[in-house]
Computed example of a mutant assay.
Amino acid sequence: MVVIEPVPSTDIQAKPSKSTTAGDGINSDVLDSGGDGKATASGYASDGYETASETEVGDDAAVSDNTDKPHVELEEVSAVSKDQTYEDALNDDELKQKVLAQMNETKVEGNKLFGDGLYEEALLKYDYAIQLAPEMSSSSEIRSICHNNRATCFFKLGKYEDTVKECTKALELNPSYMKALIRRGEAHEKLENYDEAITDMKKILELDPSSYQSKRTIVRLEPLANEKREKMKEEMLGKLKDMGNTILGRFGMSVDNFKAVKDPNTGSYSISFQR
């Protein structure tokens, strides 16, 4: 008969928790939260950094049971891409110069297309150059030039209202832009907006009193402006007369029953009724 004697149980001492390296699991003691407060499986937040992998860090061999040894933190390894590193190395001034250079290159491409008579394609190039830095103050000069160039394209295409709009945008960025004033004045003349064209010519004379061409244009346009004003006045009076006849006709009268007499001394008018 075989007697099995019981083997005395041995207390298993718990192994000290790992607080310095990544082992088979994630230890919350070494997790570093990022900007959003969330930890990742690598042990650190995923905001551009990653920790050493578990294969690079030993298991139990890297953990000492001697609590007197100093605490060792995992080293963070930067995971910044090459492009990001390059962009970060540029300071603000260099970035602005880079954008301005790209805008100028695009403008030059538009000029070449314009020279080839490809006005629609040139319009797109100028617009792209404008959109590269719509709010950057140092780009205002190039944007103003591109708006004026777009105005010139529209003028060539016979789209004079668009020409006026683009010139106005150019002048908002550069109020003393002579070419934009000249181009807008020409577009206003095409639209028979003679008073507006004269205003632009007078602005040019303020900037350059020796502008003989502007003086000639004003002299040429003033009679046309007066003629247009008189024509508009007659059209307005005609409409008012028709309206008056419609109302007075209900009473058997017309505006012809009323005569306006001008006082030569005061310039005022008196209305008299005639049957």
Rank of each mutant, 00 (worst) to 15 (best):
Q213L: 14
A187C: 10
A187N: 07
T168M: 05
T152Q: 12
F154S: 04
Y177N: 05
F155V: 00
D200Q: 09
S210H: 12
L173I: 13
E166Q: 13
E196D: 09
T163L: 02
R216I: 06
E172K: 04
E192W: 09
G158R: 07
A170D: 01
Q213S: 13
T217C: 06
L205N: 03
L173Q: 06
V164R: 00
L207T: 14
D208W: 09
T163P: 01
N193F: 00
E161H: 02
I204W: 05
T217L: 09
F154K: 02
Y194Q: 05
H188A: 05
S176W: 14
L205Y: 01
D195P: 04
S211G: 06
S210Q: 15
R216Y: 11
A170P: 04
K203H: 13
C167M: 02
D162E: 14
E161Y: 02
T163R: 01
S210Y: 09
E186H: 08
E172F: 04
G185E: 02
M201W: 10
S214N: 03
F154E: 05
N174E: 15
L191F: 05
A170L: 03
E192G: 11
D162Q: 13
A197E: 05
Y177A: 04
E189W: 11
E196G: 00
Y160W: 11
L207G: 09
A170C: 04
P209K: 10
D195I: 12
M201P: 08
I198A: 00
Y160K: 04
L173Y: 11
I198D: 00
L191T: 07
A170F: 02
S211L: 03
E166G: 13
D208E: 14
D200T: 08
E166Y: 15
L173V: 15
L207H: 14
E166A: 10
G185L: 04
E166S: 11
K159E: 12
I182D: 07
L205Q: 04
A180E: 05
S210T: 13
V164E: 00
K179R: 12
S210A: 15
K215Q: 14
N174D: 11
I204F: 04
